[in-house]
């Protein structure tokens, strides 16, 4: 039968068409549903090492309305700490599965520094937006006097679009050595790195389970003047 001979040539075409369609749809799927504005405090211990990161993530109005829905238990129109406490707890607990969306590295290293479960967490709601506060301790304090440390906050799946705040996105607190600063790296400084990542990121846009969100990551660099 001639149509079966035809069928043999058809198979690769089917596979290609299917792959192309899936690639297109999965990259298009990567559109954010939640928007979060990030402000981070780099916490230094008495030995001038970074002990952790204190985050304040402010969510968009839609997500915020969803998050506080049904939590005004006493119906007074206000959301107290008692009412929002359980929400904060569930949020920070489920963050673990996602690596807290926080990626800490020594500059130039590929390895992420391990983090401990969040501490001192709370949620406040100003009537418009929900802000989640929590501290992420590093398992081993990192010394920016030796090597600069970088922090990226992003959701690889881009379900949540994290963006650094326009004003005061990062600051240092505690007892840093004099001259230690936390700054947002501008894309220019990263252009070399971005060029290196060209091919990888191009394909990551197409594949499922991709690292799509990392393309939107803004890096915070903690360095000290002594370097």
């Amino acid at each position: 039968m001639s149509w079966t001979q035809c069928g043999c040539q058809i198979v690769p075409a089917i596979v290609l068409a299917g792959a192309a369609m899936f690639g297109l749809s999965s990259s298009a799927a990567a559109h954010p549903h939640v928007w979060a504005t990030v402000r981070s405090e780099i916490v230094f211990g008495p030995d001038h090492k970074i002990t952790g990161i204190r985050h304040a993530w402010t969510f968009d109005e839609f997500y915020s309305a969803m998050a506080v829905q049904g939590l005004d238990a006493d119906g007074d129109g206000k959301y107290s700490n008692e009412e929002l406490g359980p929400l904060a707890k569930v949020n920070v607990e489920s963050l673990e599965e996602f690596g807290y969306f926080t990626f800490v590295r020594k500059a130039g290293s590929e390895k992420f520094l391990p983090l401990k479960p969040p501490e001192d967490y709370s949620i406040d709601y100003d009537g418009t937006a929900v802000t989640l506060h929590f501290t992420l301790p590093l398992q081993m304090p990192a010394d920016p006097n030796a090597d600069a440390v970088t922090v990226d906050v992003y959701d690889p799946s881009f379900f949540v679009a994290f963006g650094l705040a326009e004003k005061e996105p990062v600051k240092v607190s505690g007892t840093p050595s004099p001259g230690c600063t936390a700054k947002v790296e501008t894309p220019d400084q990263e252009s070399a790195e971005a060029a290196k990542a060209l091919t990888e990121s191009f394909f990551s846009q197409l594949g499922p389970g991709s690292d799509y969100g990392s393309q939107f990551a803004q890096t915070v660099k903690i360095s000290c003047a002594s370097q």
Binding site: H31, P32, W35, A36, T37, V38, R39, T58, D60, F62, D126, T128, A129, A161, F162, G163, L164, A165, E166, K167, P169, P187, E190, A194, A197, L198, S201, F202, Q205, Q215, F216, Q218
Partner: peptide, 29 residues
């Protein structure tokens, strides 16, 4: 009172296109 995020900027070869899409979505929302 509510802090605002700086516009999202994507890196990579399709960066400007992706940034535009993400920023447009955010503004629409």
């Amino acid at each position: 009172a509510t802090p605002r995020a700086a516009p999202l900027q994507a890196k990579g070869p399709l960066g400007s296109l992706l940034s535009w899409v993400a920023q447009t979505q955010q503004k629409l929302q």
